[in-house]
């Protein structure tokens, strides 16, 4: 198994930390992982993206041009990454702020109303965990138990009281993700 994922959105949406939690979850189940952020001029423009690879074998290139899954959280990222999903791959997006929904017919498209749900849960910070839940529903490549362990590893101890809320958000995301095609 090798899963090549791009997570892309605005800085502050928790894109990089979501990738980190996913990578740590992979480590918890003995997978090889890589996490490669954009750190160049593009992040100065407000967008952030990270490539995460989870695999049962040694990972070759941490930088790739085609993805099994694209998780897209703003329009700029949709414009850039929709075309880079492998045929038969998955695109998951939050419709909030998307003016041009994905058009490809050769991939599976899912919608996750994470921004709206985070507002309903009165906790904007769980936004990225709702998105992660949606991904894990579509691609159950890591077990929820291992995601919780990943959260324990990637959050500083003083924030461990937030883990139940994060777990709840992941489960919510799993519930409300919708297939669009």
């Amino acid at each position: 198994m090798t899963e090549e994922i791009i997570i892309a959105g605005f800085g502050g949406q928790g894109v990089l930390s979501m990738g980190k939690i996913l990578a740590y979850s992979g480590i918890m189940q003995d997978q090889e992982v890589s996490w490669m952020p954009s750190y160049g001029p593009e992040m100065r423009g407000g967008t952030a993206n990270v490539t995460v690879i989870l695999s049962d074998s040694r990972i070759s290139s941490p930088i790739i041009q085609e993805f099994d899954t694209a998780i897209i959280l703003n329009q700029q990222s949709m414009d850039k990454f929709e075309k880079m999903v492998k045929p038969g791959g998955v695109l998951i997006y939050d419709p909030n702020g998307i003016t041009r929904p994905p058009e490809r017919k050769d991939i599976s498209v899912y919608e996750i109303d994470a921004a709206e749900e985070a507002a309903r849960m009165k906790n904007a910070k769980t936004f990225n965990m709702i998105v992660l839940g949606a991904f894990l529903k579509v691609k159950p490549i890591v077990k929820l138990d291992n995601v919780v362990k990943g959260l324990e590893k990637s959050l500083p101890a003083r924030h461990h009281n937030l883990i139940p809320a994060n777990k709840e958000a992941i489960q919510k995301g799993m519930e409300i993700v919708k297939k669009m095609n």
Partner: peptide
């Protein structure tokens, strides 16, 4: 280089 410096692995 910047790839190896910035990327995370286990």
């Amino acid at each position: 280089d910047g790839v190896i410096g910035q990327m995370m692995e286990k």
